[in-house]
Amino acid sequence: MRLLIDNVSKKFKDKWAIKYFSAELTEGVYALLGPNGAGKTTLMRMLADISMPSTGRILLNDKDISLMGDDYRDILGYLPQEFGLYKNFTAVRFLMYFASLKGLDKKFAIDKVEEVLDLVNLTKDRKRKIGTFSGGMKRRLGIAQALLNDPKILIVDEPTAGLDPQERIRFRNLLSEIAGDRIVFLSTHIVSDIEYIAKEVLLLKQGELIQRSTLGNLLEQVKGKVWSVNVTQAVLPEIQRQFKIGNIQRNESGIECRIVHDEKPVENAVAVHATLEDVYLYFFDKGAIKDV
């Protein structure tokens, strides 16, 4: 299976949300990494066939997805970043409804619904009205919905936002389990989400693909550029102004700063091991969200 994104752009008025984006995806988990407003959601909507590219085309096994239409969406699972649910539906009714939208046979759907409810740990809330669900439960139900038709292409836009650490781990494991024979395309700000599961990372900045490589390769690129230094409160503002700062942590001997910089930033800085977070910082000039 080969999903080819060919010179795709999306233009709103005179603003390019996505600019000539090209990539080829095969089975595996792809992580789309980029700061707010980079265009992640815009790109994913076009992949989910709910938004038309302004230029370019998207091909699945050499067939244009806009021509495939229903057949493309038949093998698609999509979780939007923001979505609503029917408040007076129960979880089961909601999933049965989506099963029918996805063209699942009713008998089959009944079992499938129980299966996905179990996957997202909502079995005991299956008969509750969605209106009484918490934010995290709603997102899990959204994930369940995306999985109903065993999608060959799974597009999930910040799937873990609002999930507690336990559920986040659960989801991460779920993804790595199912990714074997499908394309999973996921966007996130939370680097730990993808740390162990992403086959490749795509870095998106202001609508343009700036890097596409494996995690190892990205780490390699920032190797030797991550430093730790102990500073006093007094010089901290100056440091922050001059360098890209990661974590700042207070300890007995002052304030420990993590700096990402091509050369040794200050005298007493020591090189430290790079993480994906440092990669994010290095490319996007802005701190990644530290979470989990």
């Binding site: 909507r45 989910a48 066939d49 709910i50 229903d70 969406r73 038949d74 698609l76 999509y78 939007p80 923001e82 979505f83 609503g84 649910l85 029917y86 989506f98 029918s100 939208l101 996805k102 063209g103 959204g142 919905q145 038709n149």
Partner: peptide, 12 residues
């Protein structure tokens, strides 16, 4: 209700 995105991405 912002359910349109979910719906439009399904087969039917």
């Amino acid at each position: 209700q912002r359910t349109l995105g979910l719906i439009l991405a399904t087969k039917h």
